Amino acid sequence: MLAAFVLLLHRWFRGVQDLREVTRFVARFNAMAPPEHQVPPREAEAVLRGYLGEEFLADLVDDETSANIMYSLLFMLAHELALTEEQLDSLVAAASELVTTVETNRSEPVRLVDLTRVTGCWLSSAGCCGSPRSCR
């Protein structure tokens, strides 16, 4: 799920220069979600910005809260990108390949910065349609 979330996040926010768009995105999600499924805004913004490159922000949110936020916002990202069934299938395959690419020949756990770097390379070189293998 993490890889799919990061791929969608980078695809959605590609080219966005104004960090206030992160705040607006979280606000749109919370406005649409029932109260019991809303995400804490400050923590959600930290998670999004953390996976967009400000790694230190992701460390400010505990793992359980971060996972719940990513799970919730994954569906919002897919919805706002209006992905087709074929694109969703491609996303799942790319996410799996991304994880394999990052984990190959590693003795330590995959770090956020590794996943973000490979994702950024893959998105810029392949436009979300190619293989992340070339970005090792």
Rank of each mutant, 00 (worst) to 15 (best):
Q87E: 13
V26K: 12
G130E: 02
P109Y: 11
R14H: 10
S72C: 13
E97H: 02
L74A: 11
L98P: 02
P40K: 13
Q87S: 13
A4H: 04
S96W: 07
T116E: 06
C121P: 09
L7Y: 01
P41H: 04
D62S: 15
V47K: 13
L88E: 13
E108M: 08
T116N: 05
P41K: 09
A67Q: 12
G120Y: 04
R117G: 05
V113H: 07
S72T: 07
E85C: 14
P109C: 05
L98G: 02
S134Y: 01
D89A: 09
D62K: 15
S125Q: 10
T116W: 01
V22P: 06
N68G: 11
V47T: 13
D63E: 13
L60E: 15
T23Q: 15
A44Q: 11
L98R: 03
L52I: 11
Y51R: 12
A44C: 09
E108I: 07
A93Q: 05
I69K: 05
F29P: 01
S124K: 13
P109K: 09
Q38Y: 03
L88W: 02
Y71N: 12
P34C: 06
V92M: 10
N105T: 10
P35D: 06
L77Y: 11
T119F: 07
H10N: 12
F25N: 13
L77P: 05
R28N: 04
T119S: 15
A95G: 04
T116H: 01
L98V: 01
R111N: 02
L2M: 04
Q38L: 00
R42G: 08
L112Y: 03
R49T: 13
E54H: 07
E21F: 07
H10A: 03
E54R: 15
M70V: 01
S125T: 12
E54N: 15
G120K: 00
F75L: 08
C128R: 09
R20Y: 08
P35Y: 08
V39M: 14
G130D: 06
E97L: 02
E43C: 04
A67E: 00
C135A: 08
L52H: 11
N30H: 14
F29Q: 12
A3D: 03
T100R: 01
C135E: 05
L115W: 00
L60I: 07
D63W: 01
C128W: 06
F29V: 02
V39Y: 10
R136T: 00
F75I: 00
A126G: 14
G130P: 03
D59L: 07
Y71F: 09
R133D: 05
T119D: 03
G127C: 12
S66G: 04
G15H: 12
S124D: 15
C135L: 10
F29D: 03
A46T: 09
T65D: 15
S72P: 07
R20Q: 08
S90G: 11
T84P: 02
V39N: 14
M1N: 08
V61S: 09
S90M: 04
V61Y: 15
E108L: 10
A94L: 03
A67R: 12
V102H: 01
A46D: 14
E45M: 11
N68H: 10
S131D: 07
M1V: 00
E43Y: 08
V6D: 06
E21S: 08
R14T: 02
A4W: 00
V102R: 01
R14N: 15
A27F: 09
F29C: 10
L2D: 08
W12G: 01
F56M: 14
T23N: 07
V99I: 01
T84F: 09
T116M: 01
Y51S: 15
A4C: 15
